[in-house]
Computed example of a mutant assay.
Amino acid sequence: MTNLFSALINDEAGFIVSAELVLVATIGVLGLLVGLSEIAWGLNEEMEDVGAAFGSVNQSYAYRGTAGCKGYIAGSHFEDEYDECDSQFNLSCDIYAEPESY
Rank of each mutant, 00 (worst) to 15 (best):
M1V: 07
M1F: 12
M1Y: 06
M1S: 14
F5M: 13
S6Q: 01
L8E: 10
L8P: 03
L8K: 02
N10E: 05
E12A: 03
E12T: 08
E12S: 01
E12V: 03
G14S: 15
F15E: 12
F15V: 15
F15T: 10
F15M: 13
S18Y: 00
S18D: 03
A19T: 05
L21R: 04
L21Y: 06
V22N: 03
V22W: 02
L23W: 04
V24H: 10
V24M: 10
A25F: 06
A25T: 11
A25Q: 14
T26W: 04
T26D: 02
I27K: 04
G28E: 06
V29K: 06
V29P: 00
V29D: 06
L30C: 07
L30S: 02
L30E: 11
L32I: 09
L32G: 12
L33A: 15
V34W: 12
G35P: 03
G35I: 09
S37N: 13
E38D: 12
E38N: 07
I39K: 00
W41F: 02
N44K: 07
N44P: 02
N44H: 12
E45I: 05
E45W: 00
E46N: 06
E46G: 02
M47V: 06
E48D: 09
E48I: 03
E48H: 01
D49Y: 06
V50N: 14
V50Q: 12
A52E: 01
A53V: 04
A53F: 01
F54N: 05
F54V: 08
G55C: 10
S56W: 03
N58K: 01
N58D: 13
S60A: 13
S60Y: 08
S60Q: 13
Y61D: 12
Y61H: 14
A62S: 15
Y63F: 09
Y63E: 08
R64N: 15
G65N: 01
G65D: 02
T66F: 05
T66E: 13
T66L: 07
A67M: 14
G68H: 15
G68Q: 13
C69H: 11
C69G: 11
K70E: 15
K70F: 14
G71R: 12
G71L: 10
Y72S: 11
I73Q: 07
A74S: 08
A74K: 00
S76A: 15
F78Q: 09
F78T: 01
D80W: 08
D80C: 11
E81G: 10
D83W: 05
E84Y: 09
C85R: 09
S87I: 07
Q88I: 14
Q88S: 12
N90Y: 01
L91F: 15
L91V: 13
S92W: 13
S92E: 13
S92V: 13
C93S: 14
C93A: 15
I95M: 10
I95A: 01
A97Q: 10
A97W: 11
P99C: 11
P99W: 10
Y102A: 12
Y102M: 11
Y102I: 09
